[in-house]
């Protein structure tokens, strides 16, 4: 295990930030997060030694396995005791501890800045919590925001003391622009070939479709988590009368006369849309999690994400 950072220190760091920071994470909740760590369902090779067992056989103290010696192997790892007993050369393999890339992709299009509680704030809180968990475990944490492409990024943060940078980054994020998951994922996939855990936080209300964007990510060897966040206003709209519905992102207009039949049909359409996203993810081994902003975000992190196996 790597050097432990006292929770008190981290708390102190966050306290130095503005009140906006408290909006994201309160100290008490952070303390609870410290006991968690991010689990990857896949074992990846990292760049640096970390507090995580790697798939790569390496030089840690933890024994992993034996294998037959072949010419060119490092003679230092020969198990001489076995050679003495069996007169055959075996090589001792050790587990290598490495760090884990944890990336969070946050949808900051204008549609995310909606609802009460606000979807974007909800997403930012999840990002902050995961970042804190990652930083606490010496994982390499990257944060990206996207709308019509990657907008802002905070890449490769490591170590709990950099939590302040994360908070600063997240408090500076505001909802604007038209969402284009496809473009954003393409950009990310091109620029960041390294494996790791990737979380996409979005409402996935993509007019261009979500499938293409997720396919870009699937091409990379990522442990992918998709969290769909919808507000209560979207799940159960309180609309009535003859309306001209205006899309806040692209000013697209839909003229509707809201009736019970239309509301029923909307709910069915929404359900079918979410189901299609879920099915798309499930078929491709992507973890899908649906949440409403009504669900407490601490509950989501402490309970739902643990159930899904992202946290331990």
């Amino acid at each position: 295990m790597g050097p432990a950072v006292e929770p008190v220190v981290a708390t102190r760091m966050i306290q130095t930030d503005t009140d906006k920071a408290k909006e994201l994470l309160d100290p008490e909740f952070m303390a609870r997060l410290e006991r968690l760590e991010i689990v990857s369902r896949k074992i990846f090779m990292g760049k640096m030694r970390g507090e995580r067992r790697s798939k790569r056989r390496g030089e840690s103290v933890e024994f992993a396995d034996y294998r037959n010696y072949v010419v060119g192997d490092d003679l230092r790892f020969l198990d001489w005791n076995i050679y003495a007993r069996l007169d055959r050369l075996f090589l001792k393999l050790f587990l290598e501890e490495e760090d884990l890339h944890v990336t969070v992709l946050i949808d900051t299009s204008k549609s995310m800045d909606w609802g009460s509680p606000n979807k974007l704030l909800y997403a930012k809180r999840i990002a902050a919590a995961l970042a804190y968990i990652g930083l606490s475990n010496y994982d390499r944490v990257s944060l990206y925001t996207y709308a019509n492409g990657i907008e802002r990024e905070l890449a490769g943060v490591r170590g709990k003391r950099l939590m302040s940078k994360v908070v600063q980054f997240l408090t500076g994020v505001e909802g604007d622009g038209v969402s284009n998951l496809g473009a954003a994922c393409k950009q990310y996939a091109v620029r960041h070939p390294q494996p790791g855990v990737l979380l996409v936080l979005s409402d996935f209300l993509e007019k261009g479709g979500f499938e293409q964007g997720l396919r870009y990510l699937l091409g990379r060897n990522l442990d992918l988590y998709v969290v769909q966040i919808l507000s209560q206003e979207e799940l159960a709209p309180q609309l009535a009368g003859d309306l001209q519905l205006q899309d806040v992102e692209d000013d697209d207009v839909a003229e509707v006369t809201v009736s019970q039949a239309l509301l029923n049909r909307y709910r069915q359409t929404l359900k079918a849309y979410c189901e299609s996203l879920k099915e798309f993810c499930t078929r491709r081994g992507v973890a899908y999690l649906f949440t409403s902003t009504e669900v407490g975000f601490d509950q989501l992190v402490l309970s739902y994400l643990r159930q899904r196996g992202l946290l331990r």
């Binding site: 209300l205 001209q244 519905l245 205006q246 806040v248 839909a254 909307y266 069915q268």
Partner: peptide, 15 residues
């Protein structure tokens, strides 16, 4: 008609 801003018209149009 009264103008009502919403996050996305995607689902409404489909409905």
């Amino acid at each position: 008609r009264r103008v009502e801003p919403i996050p996305s018209t995607l689902l409404w149009k489909r409905a």
